[in-house]
């Protein structure tokens, strides 16, 4: 019993110090934003490796998720004779939930793990230390551009995911199952609200992008500089990102969609 309490206490203590280090790291990262904006090339390079390289997986996944939503939604809705609302169902679930959440989960798996591994390896091979000795702040030079790129890429990726998904639902619903095209789009437009649905979805994706990129960069920066340490850190990035995304999604949903 004592041991259990001790373990719990120790876990809490370690958790708090890690959170403290993470917060300090985040503040340092944010303080570098101005210097990165003065050198947009650094940002463009990272937008490439974070955004562009995640593009394909997001597009393909979005298409399939939308197509599956179209099929499943049709089978359920047609029982109630409400096939015309297929567009509403597909678009609302994508824009409110699946777009931000699934694309953030994919982002954590694709870009987040890559970031952790990259930063962790740079630490293990003394590149960060070496940079410091060359009087270059590794946080400003390496971390901040990646952080900004993640922050900017995530909402774009989520929007692409939702867009492609809605088109996928259109393909299946209208093309395959014969839902009326006018009904699909007009019901969607009538039911989805710009403020409540689209903007809230975008806010969600910005929050997820922030958290995922932060976790990924910090885990890499905080990794034990050995190959084992880096591989563990990479796993932690994916697991912690997933937990954070889903937990935050619940909180944000409760806050945003609570009153209707």
């Amino acid at each position: 019993m004592i041991e259990l309490l001790q373990y719990l206490g120790k876990t809490t203590r370690v958790g708090f110090t890690k959170l403290g280090r993470g917060t300090y790291f985040l503040l340092q990262t944010i303080s570098g934003i101005a210097s990165v904006l003065l050198r947009p090339r650094l940002l463009i390079n990272q937008m490439y490796s974070i955004g562009v390289l995640s593009f394909l997986i997001i597009i393909i996944s979005g298409l399939f998720v939308g197509m599956v939503l179209g099929l499943q939604g049709y089978y359920i809705l047609s029982d109630f004779g409400a096939e015309e609302t297929l567009g509403v169902m597909v678009a609302a679930s994508l824009v409110r939930e699946l777009g931000p959440v699934v694309s953030a989960l994919l982002f954590a798996g694709r870009a987040g793990s890559a970031l952790t591994a990259e930063i962790g390896l740079m630490k293990a091979t003394e590149q960060l230390s070496g940079m410091e000795m060359m009087a270059v702040d590794p946080i400003k030079r390496i971390i901040t551009p990646r952080f900004l790129a993640g922050l900017l890429s995530m909402p774009l990726l989520a929007a692409l995911f939702s867009t492609v998904g809605i088109l996928g639902g259109d393909m299946v619903g209208i093309g395959l199952l014969g839902v009326d095209e006018g009904a699909y789009w007009s019901q969607m437009q009538a039911k989805l609200d710009f403020q409540d649905d689209i903007i809230n979805g975008v806010i969600k994706s910005i929050v997820f992008g922030f958290v995922t990129t932060w976790i990924a960069l910090f885990e890499g920066y905080d990794a034990i500089p050995t190959s084992e340490g880096v591989s563990r850190a990479t796993t932690r990035t994916v697991v912690n990102s997933a937990f954070s995304i889903l937990g935050l999604d619940f909180i944000l949903t409760a806050l945003m969609f609570g009153d209707n």
């Binding site: 740079m122 091979t125 003394e126 590149q127 230390s129 070496g130 940079m131 410091e132 000795m133 060359m134 009087a135």
Partner: peptide, 14 residues
């Protein structure tokens, strides 16, 4: 530090 050079064991090339 700009006036110091350091050669790391691994080279620490980017």
């Amino acid at each position: 530090r700009k006036r110091m050079g350091m050669l790391f064991q691994s080279g620490a090339l980017l």
